[in-house]
Amino acid sequence: MSAVATAPALEVTDVEVVYERRDRDPVRAVAGVSLTVGRGQIVGLVGESGCGKSTLAKAIVGLERPRSGRIVFEGRELSPLTRRARPIEETRLQMVFQNPFSSLNPRRRIGAQLAEALQMAWSGSRAGGTGSLRERVTELLSLVGLPANAADRFAHQFSGGQRQRIAIARALAADPTVIVLDEPLSSLDASAQAQIANLLVRLSRELDLALVLISHDLAIVQHIVDEVAVMYLGKLVEQVPSGELWELPAHPYTEALIGAIPRADGERTLPVALAGEVPDPSAPPSGCRFHPRCPYAFDRCRVDEPEQIAIGRGREVACWLHEPGAEPKRPGELAAARADA
């Protein structure tokens, strides 16, 4: 019992997703990722477009079959979705999709969609509360800040932010312990982003809900998450508790991402864009995947691929600059050293 209680809610180990293509090289969209999400923890997964974030999200919930690796949810290994109904225990792992305009059925009333999700959870004898179905639907809607009469409407009658709330409400219908959110904020305007972000934090605290929040926008994520995992070209390059990240990013890529956040500090400093594009994932660069764009790359980076190494409490980085044998030289220090010379 205690072993279960202390086990992480979600444990992803060396997951690799490969897309086979006819007549062309296969794409390793996710090239071996390990990630642990504790109960009630909010983990941000950050990276540029095309780095495999969404593929990883689908693999985690079982919509994509990984070539290798394990996904352990609540102590049991999760198998990818087949034609059969997913076992009821596994439905406590939920997902919210990127586009709120395609994640709701256009032809069914919101209430019917929520009620059906509730019924599926109930039929698995997991009582999601008391009261009639209709009351539970109302409860779910109020949980995400929508009026009860929203149940009688269709998806197209709502704005993007409202739809995203409904999508979250539907995920909540399964009484989840982990929700994977694939860019839940990117298609919303700034005020809706803030509302949904606050909603997510509140829900996570109230319901002891773990969230995997996928985003390409470090600026939004920083305010919400407990831990950040930075992904580049199918691999995690850095994992760090959120607070530490801002003090001193360990990986040059993380540094570049932070540098690219616009700042309103009155000093008119323009964000620094990282040069170049994300390379073709079917032909990743040799050695460290980031070396062609890395300002600190040296010979070894072009040949050997760095493994993740622990550089602090709960902090891991995959970069030769932090190799244990070598003198630790973080990008910030290195830049300072260059400025002195």
Binding site: A85, P87, T91, M95, L104, R107, E116, M120, A174
Partner: peptide, 26 residues
């Protein structure tokens, strides 16, 4: 392939149930 069908599946609906309830009406 629509996301609302995938979400329905993640709630524990079999492919056949998703077919009847979500796909065919559309």
């Amino acid at each position: 392939q629509a996301e609302y069908v995938q979400a329905f599946r993640l709630h524990g609906a079999s492919a056949r149930r998703a077919m009847w309830k979500e796909v065919l009406p559309n």
